[in-house]
């Protein structure tokens, strides 16, 4: 609070120095106290939350490798037996192979089908472009249940359900639009003058793609492919609906086991969860590594 000051009567050009009468500056005690309280409580809250997150992750891992763990702080011993048992009992290797086949195939198909579209979206302006972009966004903003159930009923009626083809094809529903959005920034950042140059040198559309566009976006495609791959590795709802006993992805298999799991020892189930966690972590780190690598290469 500062009192209103009367207009200074003096007519001097130089500023009036009245420093001596100035009130000393003072901190607000209440403000200091509040700020201190806010900081302390934030730290407590954050550390608590992170302890839980880390504790949870650690608990799964320890439990999967623990011999006996009941009410003590740490397991009494460590073993890979549960892990091996889970791996054998549920044919994890087999399901892992199936998952990789499905996801890899679907990733490649998604990329191939979406690239031409991405090119048009990045280079051409046309009336319904915004609407089209909106449309491509729908499959991953709408709840997947809305299309998953009718797709399942259709697939069962035409015999695509419980087949590898069926599982690959349903992955495209999210795969194609997802790869459109993930590739778009890479293609948009390409310099169109390179294409004009190529065309002026007589390159056909096909040659243009093959020789000019594709080589430039290889780093982008690699990074995108890993992200699409992770996304599909996690596809759940629709796979659960159309999977058969022998054509399941890893996460659906794990889920099915967990769902009816009254009899299994928890260590076994945690080992199973771990088999799902390891590839996910691996691919996430790979994605981070590739994107930092490509950014370096592009000089960003």
């Amino acid at each position: 609070m500062r009192a209103e000051k009367p207009i200074i009567e003096e007519e001097t050009e130089t500023p009036v120095v009245k420093g001596k009468h100035q009130k000393p500056l003072r901190n607000s005690k209440k403000g200091k106290l509040l700020q201190g309280g806010y900081k302390t409580s934030s730290w407590v809250l954050i550390l608590l939350f992170l302890t839980i997150v880390l504790g949870m992750t650690l608990a799964v891992i320890l439990s999967a490798f623990g011999e006996e763990w009941y009410g003590t702080i740490f397991p009494e011993g460590y073993t890979v037996e549960w892990f091996v048992n889970a791996w054998q009992a549920y044919e994890v290797g087999e399901y892992f192979k199936i998952t990789m086949e499905i996801v890899l195939t679907a990733t490649v198909i998604s990329l191939v089908l979406s690239l031409p579209t991405v090119y048009i979206l990045a280079r051409r302006d046309f009336p319904f472009k915004q609407a089209l972009l909106g449309f491509f966004q729908m499959p991953f903003t709408l709840p997947d249940l809305l299309y998953a159930i009718p797709v399942a009923s259709i697939f069962y009626s035409i015999g695509l359900a419980e087949t590898m083809t069926g599982l690959i094809v349903v992955n495209l529903i999210v795969g194609i639009p997802f790869s459109v959005f993930i590739l778009l920034p890479y293609v948009e950042s390409l310099d169109p003058r390179l294409e004009y140059a190529a065309q002026s040198l007589g390159a056909s559309k096909f040659k243009l793609f093959q020789r000019v566009i594709i080589p430039q976006i290889v780093p982008g495609i690699t990074a995108s492919a890993i992200n699409i791959f992770i996304r599909m590795f996690n596809t759940f709802t629709i796979i659960l609906l159309i999977s058969g006993p022998k054509t399941q992805t890893l996460n659906v298999m794990v889920f099915s086991v967990l769902q009816g799991s009254g009899s299994q020892p928890p260590a076994m189930l945690n080992s199973l969860a771990l088999t799902l966690m390891i590839p996910l972590l691996f691919f996430s780190f790979l994605s981070l590594w590739v994107s930092s690598f490509t950014q370096k290469r592009l000089g960003k």
């Binding site: 000051k5 200074i8 500023p15 120095v17 009245k18 420093g19 009468h21 100035q22």
Partner: peptide, 13 residues
């Protein structure tokens, strides 16, 4: 000049 004096805080070194 007079008007603007109302902005002047007491000057500080």
């Amino acid at each position: 000049a007079l008007k603007s004096k109302s902005f002047v805080s007491e000057s500080t070194k």
